[in-house]
């Protein structure tokens, strides 16, 4: 149970960062925190207490196995997260080149 609560805490820290920080890079870090809290939850979902690697072999036939599907999913999700974070950081660097600042309050050409 404590692990799930820690996951939730990580999510809240990320959300807090996204909402309160003024720095573009810190907002990106907050988003990454949120993403990774969900990835952790995804791994926890597949975890089985005392489970073994789900490889069928002559020696291992009984026993509870951990669920391999969330692990495959989390790998895919991490790769997607990598792509979107790289995109975000690339935009952040471009923003810095155009505006000369990372302060989100000064980046306000658009209203609405």
């Amino acid at each position: 149970m404590i692990l799930y609560l820690l996951c939730f805490l990580l999510f809240l820290i990320g959300l807090y960062g996204v909402i309160t920080r003024r720095n573009v890079i810190k907002i990106v870090i907050g988003l990454v925190f949120m993403e990774f809290s969900v990835f952790l939850l995804l791994v926890l979902v597949g975890y089985v207490e005392g489970g073994e690697a789900p490889i069928l072999d002559e020696t291992i036939v009984s026993g509870p196995f951990v669920d391999p599907l969330p692990q495959a999913m989390v790998l895919t999700a991490i790769v997607i997260g990598l792509a979107s974070n790289a995109m975000l950081l690339a935009i952040a660097i471009r923003l810095y080149k155009k505006y000369g600042t990372f302060d989100i309050r000064k980046i306000n050409e658009l209203k609405g």
Partner: peptide, 15 residues
């Protein structure tokens, strides 16, 4: 300037 700002906003909310 505007395109980058819009894209950043879109990405944070989309993320």
């Amino acid at each position: 300037k505007q395109e980058l700002e819009a894209s950043f906003k879109y990405q944070v909310l989309g993320g």
